[in-house]
Design a binder for these strands. Sequence first.
DNA 1: TTCCTTGCAAAACTTTTGCATTAAA
DNA 2: TTTAATGCAAAAGTTTTGCAAGGAA
Lengths: 143, 143
Amino acid sequence: MLVYTQSVDRALQKLTACGIRPTAQRVQIAALLLSADQHLSAEQILASLGARGMHVSKATVYNTLNLFAASGLIRQLSIDGERTWFDSNTAAHYHFHDVDGGELIDVPVPDVEFSRLPTIPDGMELAGIDLVIRVRRKQAEAA
Amino acid sequence: MLVYTQSVDRALQKLTACGIRPTAQRVQIAALLLSADQHLSAEQILASLGARGMHVSKATVYNTLNLFAASGLIRQLSIDGERTWFDSNTAAHYHFHDVDGGELIDVPVPDVEFSRLPTIPDGMELAGIDLVIRVRRKQAEAA
DNA sequence: TTCCTTGCAAAACTTTTGCATTAAA
DNA sequence: TTTAATGCAAAAGTTTTGCAAGGAA
């Protein structure tokens, strides 16, 4: 339980550092998300908490995830229109998306280089770059 | 009405070319979408048809858009998790997304150059690259 | 006829909201 | 004690589905 205790402690610190009141539910959700670089849906988080015997209501899960995203503690991803994904890795990075399995894999920033980017429209400024590289299982070639 | 007649004709041709039975509803939806490079939601298409006095049911609009997307006649975009956008431009291109107004603007392929891309995971192949450049209205600087 | 498409309403899902209750500062 | 967070159920929004009726081949 050492690892778990550590991630609860770290979660508590992070929430406090962001000026978010560290309620029991928020600490649990933060501990779960921040235990690794991962992509989770609200439903998955609800289920994980439930599996660990911690009941948190659906409304609170959503409210909390939105709060965390607004505070920059996590990042929201629009990958497939099915649902929102919450990414615990807030450092700049990109994604592979397995269109068959739905899986998301991080792509580190240094693995992508832009030698040319479009001019930002007048009166606008850059807010971020989302790059999703869709991949699929390779078809077996005819022998 | 010349322009409109033309786009209906073109829509009919395209549907036939794709092996899609050109029913009245499908032709109307295709004519609307394919009249220009644009990004429309299912609800907008439903409203546009209604405004022109053509009634098409919501179910048919969704069924048709999904059919068109599966046939490669249009492209589905996951931009913001709110809803799916249907892009009438199926040529490769990228997007600016105005995070304030929600507007989408096409970015032509030659405006972006990748000098480095990550290695595709083993057993996978590239299926596509979605690039969304988020922009926001520039803050007025202090005078 | 036979098969496919349409339309309506209802269902399914994800996400948000209203409000009484509870917990935190 | 005062303010903010939680939980529940209900609502809202988008998209899908079941099924009867209609249309094309």
